[in-house]
């Protein structure tokens, strides 16, 4: 009896894993026809499989992105992974005073270059270079998540420059409008860092309009030209439904 049960189990397994031969298939059908109990076993396995296949994937949302980036930045001291290997550096810049002098010279050159870029009026600021060297330390921002859209705005400030970095992941086209007063801010730059497909982008006096579809990263750089508190208003809409409408204040 146990032998017959073991053989039946083997045949059912072969059928359900798709590895049954024609001969085994015939044998299994015969065994199932001959015994109600064995047929019941088989039907139970089938029922269980169907029940499992009808499970809907779980979709609970969380947002750990800022914490993850902060932890990585803290651990790396804002270094890029590609700079981990210092073997060449160590072998060529020994002893220690030579290394120290080298670091000082590079620091002065980089500092001068960055100062020139930030203070230059030619609009040649390299936003990726600047944002890449910063840690995620936005004082205020926007975080929005729904089942098909997540939006994150992380503002950074360097002196009087305000970097508004939008990171969007959405299945539906989402339109953004950013308003500011031209007496408070001068727009230095506004561009897609990452986007899927070509996305529209328009500027008017005191506003930037852009769209996100799929994973999109967008950056706006505003120079604050007033000493008093100023604000930027961000709105996001999807199919003319308002998702976000938020006013951010900058001292």
């Amino acid at each position: 009896m146990w032998f017959r049960k073991a053989r039946l189990d083997r045949l059912i397994k072969a059928r359900m894993t798709g590895e049954i031969s024609a001969e085994q298939e015939a044998k299994l059908n015969k065994m199932l026809q001959d015994s109600d109990a064995q047929e019941k076993e088989y039907l139970r396995m089938q029922e269980l499989k169907l029940q499992l296949e009808s499970i809907r994937p779980t979709e609970e949302n969380i947002d750990v992105s800022v914490r993850v980036i902060q932890k990585i930045s803290a651990a790396n001291h804002a270094e890029n992974p590609k700079t981990h290997n210092f073997d060449v550096f160590n072998s060529y810049f020994n002893p220690l005073p030579a290394r120290f002098a080298f670091v000082m010279i590079i620091g002065i050159i980089l500092g001068a270059g960055l100062t020139w870029m930030v203070t230059s009026q030619s609009g040649s600021v390299n936003p990726q270079m600047l944002s890449g060297s910063l840690s995620a330390s936005g004082k205020q921002g926007i975080s929005y998540a729904s089942h098909n859209t997540s939006i994150k705005l992380v503002p950074y400030q360097i002196e009087n420059l305000y970097y508004l970095n939008f990171v969007v992941d959405t299945r539906n086209e989402t339109n953004f409008e950013v308003f500011f007063s031209e007496t408070d801010f001068v727009m230095k730059k506004s561009e897609y860092v990452t986007s899927q497909g070509s996305q529209p982008l328009s500027f008017n006096s005191g506003s930037v309009v852009f769209a996100a579809n799929g994973i999109t990263s967008f950056q706006i750089i505003l120079e604050k030209v007033t000493r008093s508190q100023a604000s930027v208003t961000v709105t996001a809409t999807q199919n003319q439904n308002n998702l976000i409408s938020r006013q951010l204040f900058f001292d």
């Binding site: 800022v66 993850v68 930045s73 890029n80 944002s131 890449g132 990171v167 990452t194 990263s217």
Partner: peptide, 13 residues
């Protein structure tokens, strides 16, 4: 890998 750790946020999100 070659530009900035901040881009990693896209994958996390």
């Amino acid at each position: 890998l070659f530009e900035s750790v901040n881009v990693y946020e896209l994958l996390v999100v």
